[in-house]
């Protein structure tokens, strides 16, 4: 095992491009296969002339989907199971079983938690005049959490192998899941008045009123018809109507 452990670093580096060939057939499967391959090289020296290695590589590159930051858990666990000689069917079941939980956990923890939390904090910092230092702080703090999560996931998968589902019950993760959305609500709430003031500051009263009207009507439309009206089209329509209206009202 000691000979394999340093290759965790290679697998981690490859995990940073795990979505490089994202496609509708295998989703991130090919990227997972790429990340898993360094961990499987032990199998090349087997008595079967590398057949086990090639079979493991092929399995690793099949359909897979998860949150990209947590894909390492599946990579580590599947590679460990391959090296431990687990039956192919068990490895396939393991991969299939991990798809849902790793996707849901990562989405909740990162896309609806860590990322919007820091994004809202950065909005507040910028509205208070932090300038580009606020953006730099966002990048550094976000990526400390991001890289730590990727590394933890890979190590946890590698350590647990087929027993990896237990790692998902990590108490720190569970507490984080419970706290992160209220924290987003709190920090976004804090940021909102500051951002509103900062956005309307350049305008005189008519401009500020126009901004407020667009915001209220837009929010009502987005809440009234969620999924049918996209914020992008709403924003674009507002800008075009304003441009046309302003042009006509000369």
């Amino acid at each position: 095992m000691d000979r394999v452990k340093p290759r965790l670093g290679a697998a981690l580096l490859r995990l940073f491009v795990v979505q490089g060939s994202w496609n509708y057939d295998r989703l991130i499967g090919v990227g997972v296969g790429i990340a898993e391959e360094p961990l499987l090289r032990e199998l090349r020296s087997g008595p079967d002339n590398g057949a086990a290695y090639r079979a493991a590589v092929a399995r690793g590159a099949r359909f897979f989907n998860s949150h990209p930051y947590l894909a390492g858990m599946a990579v580590g666990a599947a590679a460990r199971a391959e090296l431990d000689g687990a039956p192919p069917e068990q490895i396939e079941r393991l991969r299939a079983a991990l798809c849902g939980p790793l996707g849901a956990l990562g989405d909740r923890l990162v896309w609806t938690g860590w990322l919007p939390l820091l994004s809202a904090a950065t909005l507040a910092a910028l509205a208070l005049g932090a300038g580009w230092w606020g953006v730099l702080a966002f990048l550094v703090i976000y990526n400390l959490g991001h890289v730590a999560l990727r590394w933890w996931a890979l190590q946890a998968g590698w350590a647990a192998g087929t027993q990896v589902v237990g790692a998902l019950r990590n108490p720190v993760l569970q507490r984080g899941l419970g706290a992160v959305v209220p924290a987003v609500a709190l920090v976004f709430g804090f940021a909102l008045p500051l951002v509103v003031r900062w956005l309307v500051q350049p305008f005189r009263l008519p401009g500020a009123i126009a901004c407020g009207v667009v915001a209220v009507v837009g929010l009502a439309l987005l809440r009234w018809q969620p999924g049918r009206i996209a914020s992008l089209w709403l924003g674009l329509a507002a800008v075009l109507v304003a441009a046309a209206g302003g042009w006509l009202w000369r």
């Binding site: 667009v214 837009g218 914020s231």
Partner: peptide, 14 residues
């Protein structure tokens, strides 16, 4: 001014 106000309002709504 009108387009900027519209963009800012749309962004707040989103």
């Amino acid at each position: 001014v009108a387009t900027s106000a519209a963009a800012a309002g749309g962004a707040l709504a989103a």
